[in-house]
Nucleic acid binder design. Structure first.
Length: 847
RNA sequence: GCGGAUGUGGCGGAAUUGGUAGACGCGCUGGCCUUAGGAGCCAGUGGGUGAAAACUCGUGGGGGUUCGAGUCCCUCCAUCCGCACCA
């Protein structure tokens, strides 16, 4: 029964360590994945994974993101598209040791591993953001934004990380802690560089409509972060000092209930206001205490409201009433105007403050009660504020506006105040300008000089890049280490030629990564950042793939950059990423991998032991790629077994069938299928192969269902094992069907396991699978003459019957009723209803 | 507190439009092959009753819509994530 050839095959070992380097060398030597910028008749597609921060070696997240992106890139290419799939490194940042050396070592290791993974990258476009050839253009963009008034310097209260010894953007502070190192963030008053992202707040919101597919949660997070709220700016006047204080409120309908007024401790006028009132010392103590608090302490959940009177009052514009002013840290300087009107009856925070300091709580809103009269809510107001604001909430104690609905009153009171300049409708955003200066050495220098006579002078474009000097001590000490490089700092002013000093702060690394996807399109251009026509040919990115942790930071900054550069006429696209895919995390024992938990596993160990194809397929097979997945070594073994099984099948089929048959489908295939020229086994094999083609294609299109796509190839291979013994040693048609189906398994698996896919296809005489068009399923093999009819009685499955695919509804009912198993359930009962789903099911409802 | 997601065998997961729940893989059980195998091949595998045929229960809990619900609606619970003094 078993031939020598068969038993040989059983003992052959699938050896990825010889197969994988073989194909990698061909791809490297022939630059297979290089794509030219010269358009051709193929549609272009830009597939991009978020660029890696090179530190140590790649981790499981990298393996996952490139497994997903590479599968997509391969699939696109084989569907006749011209695919841009580049690679680079986010190589400025916070390295521990000698930055230049450690960065370049890490990049070399990343590149080496990516090559062992067989990722189909156009290596001719590779760069690191720390290379002068790249950051020259980062500086150029900075100057463009500066010219446009979108980059500016101002003194402001900023987030300071005492550990990293640098300022942080608002977005980089998480729960009052440094996003990077976890230290409690302090507030400092410093002069810093900002990008005017707030000018784009509205468009960042509006243009969500232009995106093709982005996860809802990412859009929601950005929307919340931008924090648009509509309301009114209302002017309260301090008559004693003759200063007007506008406040922002979303509740102008509650103005008649304002019984006090609060300023943030950072408000520049608090000392001026307190002066001469006797409150000076108390105010100074309070403000100093607030300044010493970390952001976290200030924002703590259960923190009791505190504050001190300023000893002054302001006039409420709706009723001319003078109300007392306070300073309290529950008011934030960075939102609105840094001052608020306080309506304790209808705002919980104001309520708590008023309760503590015995300030009047004056109700001006009431829910509609019976008979259209306002309901009595005094009981509730003894406990907490009443914050509802709907059509059925009406104003009380509000002069001429009493009786109006809360909703109408907002508009009418704003309009009334607006008529004589005491207020206006406005929109406010939580979003603040992007703080981009960093007091770090390893970053892109900000290309300006400070001249005593000329002020801030941009470095002329022709003199870019402003290169990072080599220095001895790059440990941050509160100001940029670059300040110590006196030979570099001291320059001549580009305008007056007088003595001047270079800016010593460097840029936030998020600036580097806000435009790298544009540079890829024309990465070797040393005359300009990109050629416009080339850029527009590729942009926007068709599929952007990465972790959801960048939902706000990177993705919002990149959107802002694209819009700003668009407005400057430099970029055609308005949005950078048409489709966004956020991959889930790889966990270990159900927990995030971390050094402190000691549960970190690295891809390299698995790639060395099982090969890249196994590691890549496993990470895709483990579950839907947008969900978190737990890494299990037994699962890896299972996938490895499957790949070995396919490889052995290919070897056996190759050895025991005639090589001249190649990988073509049997010639008698579709024409003679019904006439029986193909054996039953061959037909089963052909049908399964075409079923798999259809399934994998469907899973790749539209959704990233790689897990079920791989499962389909597993099913095909299982079917081939079942049929192969009958088909080997048979006639040419049978042998052809086997060769075709085995090669098809390799072809379908190629996007996920490129080395093995190429090996199997080539072994059977198909040549280079990546040059072969993606297979199309033959409808003739998908349709079947017979179906399995499910028969239900009262919705419960009672039988399954083989039926002709083209049977009529009546025939199906007849068939169903004839079944013995069905009869035992319907005998002697009245048939109420019979439902037929053609080709699928009959449900007989009896009583 | 607000917003979002998820909940299916022992485990990872499948079920694309309301129509056979559990594809595929892991694990487990049995068989074949083998000097042996933790290799390979084949078969079985949601729970309960049963010798079997079969019956019955079953997609976090409860309720509803429907001939029919993992899928739609209401409600509760659990876990995870994001935001959180934003006036």
């Amino acid at each position: 029964m078993s031939t020598p050839a068969e038993s040989d095959v059983q003992h052959l070992r699938y050896d990825p360590t010889t197969i994988e380097p073989k194909w990698q060398q061909i791809w490297r030597d022939e630059k297979t994945w290089h794509v030219s910028n010269k358009p051709d008749d193929r549609p272009s597609s830009y597939v991009l994974e978020m660029l890696p921060y090179p530190s140590g070696e790649p981790h499981m997240g990298h393996l996952k993101v490139y497994s997903v992106g590479d599968a997509l890139a391969h699939y696109r290419r084989r569907n006749g598209m011209r695919v841009l799939h580049p690679m680079g490194y986010d190589s400025f940042g916070l390295p521990a040791e000698n930055p230049r050396e450690s960065t370049e070592d890490a990049i070399a290791e990343f590149r080496r591993q990516f090559e062992t993974w067989g990722v189909s990258i156009d290596w001719d476009r590779e760069f690191g953001t720390h290379e002068p050839g790249y950051y020259r253009w980062t500086q150029w963009i900075f100057l463009k934004l500066f010219e446009a008034g979108l980059a500016y310097q101002k003194e402001a209260a900023v987030n300071w990380c005492p550990n990293d010894q640098t300022v942080l953007a608002n977005e980089q502070v998480v729960d009052g802690h440094c996003e990077r190192c976890g230290a409690a963030v302090e507030i400092k008053q410093l002069k810093q560089w900002f990008f005017k992202i707030t000018e784009y707040a509205e468009r960042l919101l509006d243009d969500f409509a232009q995106l093709e597919s982005w996860p809802d949660n990412v859009i929601t997070m950005q929307r919340n972060w931008i924090g648009r709220s509509e309301g009114a700016e209302v002017v309260f006047s301090c008559e004693e000092l003759g200063i007007d204080y506008p406040v922002f409120t979303t509740r102008p309908d509650t103005l008649f209930g304002a019984t006090f007024f609060v300023m943030a401790p950072e408000h520049p006028d608090v000392f001026k206001l307190a002066e001469g009132t006797g409150a000076e010392q108390a105010v100074r103590d309070y403000v100093n205490a607030a300044a010493r608090k970390s952001k976290e302490e200030r924002g703590a959940d259960d923190k009791e409201k505190t504050g001190v009177p300023l000893g002054r009052s302001v006039v409420n514009p709706v009723n001319g009433e003078a109300i007392p002013m306070y300073v309290s840290d529950y008011v934030l300087m960075e939102y609105g105007t840094g001052a608020i009107m306080a309506v304790p009856a209808h705002d919980q925070r104001d309520y708590e403050f008023a309760k503590k300091y015995g300030i009047e709580i004056r109700q001006v809103i009431a829910p509609a009660g019976e008979g259209g009269q306002p309901a009595d809510i005094s009981e509730q107001l003894a406990e907490q504020a009443y914050v509802s604001s709907t059509e059925s909430d009406v104003l009380v104690n509000s002069g001429d506006f009493s009786g109006k609905s809360s909703v109408d009153a907002k508009r009418e009171i704003t309009g009334w105040l607006g008529a004589d300049g005491r207020g206006k409708a406005t929109v406010n955003y939580k979003l603040r300008d992007w703080l981009v200066s960093r007091q770090r050495y390893w970053g892109c220098p900000i290309p300006v000089v400070h001249c005593d006579d000329c002020g801030i002078v941009p470095v002329p474009e022709a003199r870019l890049p402003v290169e990072l000097p080599d220095i001895d001590d790059y440990v941050p000490k509160g100001k940029s280490p670059l300040a110590a490089a006196t030979g570099w700092v001291e320059v001549h002013c580009p305008e007056c030629k007088g003595p001047a000093r270079r800016e010593t702060d460097t840029m936030d690394t998020f600036v580097d990564s806000s435009w790298y996807f544009m540079r890829y399109t024309d990465a070797r251009n040393d005359r300009e950042a990109w050629h416009r026509a080339v850029l527009n040919e590729w942009m926007p990115v068709d599929n952007y793939i990465g972790g959801v942790e960048h939902a706000i930071l990177h993705l919002m900054y990149a959107r802002f950059f694209t819009k700003a550069l668009h407005d400057l006429g430099l970029v055609g696209a308005v949005e950078p990423f048409k489709n966004l895919f956020t991959q889930g995390m790889i966990t270990r024992d159900g927990a995030k991998m971390s050094k402190s938990k000691g549960n970190v596993i690295s891809p390299s160990a698995y790639v060395e032991k099982y090969g890249a194809d196994t590691a890549r397929c496993y990470i895709l097979f483990i579950g839907p790629p947008d969900q978190d997945a737990d890494w299990a070594d037994e699962g890896v073994e299972g996938v490895h077994r499957f790949l070995a099984r396919l490889w052995r099948l290919a070897v056996e089929v190759e050895q025991r069938t005639d090589a001249s048959l190649g990988v073509a489908a049997p010639q008698s295939a579709d024409a003679d299928r019904s006439s029986g020229a193909l054996s039953d086994g061959a037909q089963a094999v052909m049908r399964k192969a075409h079923w798999a083609i259809d399934k994998v294609t469907g899973d790749m299109e539209g959704r990233f269902a790689f897990n079920t796509a791989i499962a389909a190839v597993m099913e095909l291979v299982n079917e081939l094992y079942k049929c192969k013994d009958a088909l080997l040693d048979s006639d040419d048609a049978d042998a052809s069907s086997l060769r075709f189906a085995t090669a098809t398994a390799g072809s379908l698996l190629f996007p996920f396991a490129p080395h093995l896919g190429a090996e199997v296809y080539d072994m059977l005489g198909g040549g280079r699978v990546w040059e072969v068009t993606w297979p199309a399923a033959d409808a003739a093999y998908l349709a079947s003459d017979s179906i399995t009819l499910v028969v239900q009685v009262n919705g419960k499955v009672r039988d399954k019957i083989e039926a002709a695919a083209d049977a009529s509804e009546d025939e199906l009912i007849e068939l169903a009723r004839a079944s013995e198993r069905v009869q035992s359930h319907i005998d002697g009962k009245e048939t109420v209803k019979q439902i037929v789903v053609p080709g699928k099911l009959v449900n007989i409802v009896v009583r």
